[in-house]
Design a protein around this nucleic acid. Sequence first.
DNA 1: GTGAAAGCGCTAACAA
DNA 2: TTGTTAGCGCTTTCAC
Lengths: 332, 332
Amino acid sequence: MRTTIYDVAKKAEVSMSTVSMVMNNKGSISDATRKKVMKVLEELQFTSSRSSIVLKKRSAYTVGLLIPNLENPLFVEIARNVCQRGHELGLSVVICNTENDAEKEVQYITRLKEKNLDGLILAGGFENDAILQEVVGEGLPIVLIGQNIPSLGVDSVHVDDCLGGYQVTEHFLSLGHQTIAVFAENTRSSKERLHGYRQAIKDAGLEYNESLVFVCDSTVSSKQLAKQILGLINRPTAIFACNDLLAVGIMQGAKERGLRVPHDLSIIGFDNTILSRSIDPPLTSVDQPIEEMGRQGIDLLIERIEGKEKTKRQVILFPKVIFRNSTKTHPI
Amino acid sequence: MRTTIYDVAKKAEVSMSTVSMVMNNKGSISDATRKKVMKVLEELQFTSSRSSIVLKKRSAYTVGLLIPNLENPLFVEIARNVCQRGHELGLSVVICNTENDAEKEVQYITRLKEKNLDGLILAGGFENDAILQEVVGEGLPIVLIGQNIPSLGVDSVHVDDCLGGYQVTEHFLSLGHQTIAVFAENTRSSKERLHGYRQAIKDAGLEYNESLVFVCDSTVSSKQLAKQILGLINRPTAIFACNDLLAVGIMQGAKERGLRVPHDLSIIGFDNTILSRSIDPPLTSVDQPIEEMGRQGIDLLIERIEGKEKTKRQVILFPKVIFRNSTKTHPI
DNA sequence: GTGAAAGCGCTAACAA
DNA sequence: TTGTTAGCGCTTTCAC
């Protein structure tokens, strides 16, 4: 049978409440008693049962982290940082890999609620917006990492995706590229990046050409797609991939077409993940300050949980293009 | 205030115990009562509080998954599959990223124990063997994934690392390579792989040369090391990297030395992660059946939790070399 | 077939 | 400063 606070009390010859107070640094306890209790606590290697505390306090010191896809190193990195920061602050972080499945999203949220979780962090896309709305309605604190859903009215921390897209496009343009394709996912952040692209194109006095925008959803499909469009007569000379995963696929597709990067084709990715550093040639990619995002995400959430904040806050971080060797001047 | 089983009981005009029995399919309930209760359950969208169940039953339907390093896609993949299988079976899986830190290992395990966890899965290395021994002594079910620690006497599921190392080396030898270096981590599985290498070298009638074995621990250090040893006069013509992460570093080091893979240097990795498919040239790597490992890991653990099994079991899976383009015949 | 009641391990209000 | 006690929400005997 598990050791309980009662066993400690008995051994230390005090009451349960005294032990509880010692453990939680509450009330006023005489030094002698405190020492006595501490000693027994140590001897018995006592750690209290979480579930009874949760039951009593109606708080599990737990936050759920919903991730759409652990295949993308970006999300792994976000998870790592959120867990890290949570751990520092004594919070449990439960990682839930929803795999972009609306069904799973509901299941995970339901399960988390059963556990009396204190808040939710959503990293990346979410399929089932209705349930989110419901959760928000119930007053459960939520923080968005890596995106903003204006209609939801919750805190968020993300880079200025639009600016990132703008910078990428601007760079391509400065290299003389005119036919710049975009590979985007069907997510809010991709749309923002695309928006930046469009803006840059317009600002350069060029025509925005929708047929250069391709929506796809994984390494595999971006590879197929890239292979296909790179076979066109008037093929793009530069491609902006809205994340590194897509960029990897594009590179593979280009290779199968016999095109060399960056000589025949320039590519820029987004997220600056380990992938951009592993592939050959190293991929120019837009960095998101993930550590900062993880830290701020948790911190925002905690303030919200503690009820300090009532207004909606948005932390917008700056993207930064990390130049590597996947782009080149376009021979005019 | 949260809806409780008592609210359900009141609304359905039955007792709490009846509701409980309906929810858990226990006892004998008349069809009429069952329907009545089900209806209210549905109306109230009732889900029961986990913590009270845990408190009462002393089981949280939770298993902890200790991962040494989320930077390695292998572990991410393992986590994904373990979570997946756990979810299917209604178990919560708590991912704990210990970052190879003995301190964190203890913290996580302590915290998990407070939560009444039912079992522990260890994927990959573990720094603090003493605490493991302690946990085993307490009777907490443990399963090892991707390694075996014979002294611990617990269930495990892993590939035949020795065989994998043997196959890799055999392949290099068949291509005519004689000077084959090994980059290993300081882990049990690396040691097994190295053991296979040694065996293959010996079986080929060659001398085992310890100075060709290098221990390192990340992409960065393998890159530095590779750069260094590839500058030697009598440099290796083939390198066996005990995981893909190391292989990536080696490739980068080789590149900085001006060596082309596979033309000037053959490389084989281990784990067949996404990295081996992303880099250029695609890396020949030894596949571990991760999905199988995740599934079997959870399943072994559950049987153990349910007390069905008493004997130690070891599931040994077969590694499989996936040939890509990172090796080439050695010009004699 | 159903309900009453005890109790899982803890916290916090109130007494002493 | 310390102890007593009433629950938190549920499961599970044991009566009926």
